[in-house]
Design a protein around this nucleic acid. Structure first.
Ligand SMILES: [Mn+2]
Ligand SMILES: [Mn+2]
Ligand SMILES: [Zn+2]
Ligand SMILES: [Zn+2]
Lengths: 147, 147
DNA sequence: CCCTTATTGAAAAGATTTTTCAATAAGGGC
DNA sequence: GCCCTTATTGAAAAATCTTTTCAATAAGGG
């Protein structure tokens, strides 16, 4: 099943109605390979549903986040971009130029977490890990710019 | 040398004047063990210098960040808290209840980064790592609340 | 002790997000 | 299919947070 269909179904099961506004937001974000701001989702969404309001973008994001389907992605330049949530324990690798986002897994923080719990007395409950760099397409473009 | 003295000296060397507003911000943030918002710095700063303006807090944070002395700390509840910068390669462990922040080092992400560069074609340049939990004091308080 | 000018706080402006509200339409029950 | 209830909508207003403007002030080199 496509991710957007799954999201629509999850919204329904969460007791929410399926509206044109929600369909537009889901269509834009569920299939995106890039993190998107509310304003970007709004712009893109209006191509599918021109009456879409920015308020409904915010409201739909809120519901998708609550259902665990969407996550907020923070960056140095701004903390209001959104992306489909990881499935299972994954984090994102982000291109600083084009905002492409790729999931990865396999961080092995257990030893570190264990050691720090012992040393600091904290009970460690969660962690954020994000990797930043340049995707291969942007690396080529950047080299071209340097000439 | 105390961290606040060092910061004042660094501001001077950066070509900035030492004013009462800057001294107040430095005094509050340099010795803090907790991440602080601009509004919290403003409130605390006014106890040392009642004429302090919120604008000067923002402007001082901007300079301290530019000099690499202060870093912004992001959390789920908000992305506008500040804390002294790590020295060398360190990250922070944060208490979700009292905002206490503790530096740590020793994350070993090299193997992961190497593997992902090969797999994805990204050139990975930096990473964010933050650990969240409960400090020991807050753990006790939370247990008491549960009774 | 000047003099230049960086810096200040207050107020205004900008940017982003949330709330309010009357109109609309989703979708369960018939 | 057709109601009827009420969740949802978009526009406008309000609330928040941050930045800019500006005339007054004070830092600090000479
Ligand atoms: Mn992990
Ligand atoms: Mn690290
Ligand atoms: Zn890229
Ligand atoms: Zn704590």
């Amino acid at each position: 099943m496509r991710r957007s269909e799954f999201w629509l179904q999850a919204l329904r099961q969460g007791g929410y109605r399926l509206t044109a506004a929600r369909r537009a937001v889901v269509r834009v974000l569920a299939e995106s390979e890039h993190t998107l701001t509310p304003a970007e989702i709004y712009q893109a969404g209006r191509r599918f549903y021109p009456a879409l309001g920015l308020v409904s973008v915010y409201r739909t994001l809120e519901k998708l986040e609550e259902l665990g389907l969407v996550q907020r992605v923070h960056r140095a330049e701004g903390c209001n971009t959104y992306f489909p949530s990881a499935e299972g324990h994954q984090h994102v690798l982000l291109c600083r130029r084009c905002q492409q986002a790729v999931f990865f897994s396999g961080d092995d923080l257990e030893p570190l977490v264990g050691r720090l719990q012992a040393e600091t007395g904290f009970r460690i409950e969660r962690h954020w890990l994000q990797l930043f760099g340049l995707c291969s397409a942007c690396r080529e473009k950047e080299e071209k710019d340097d000439e």
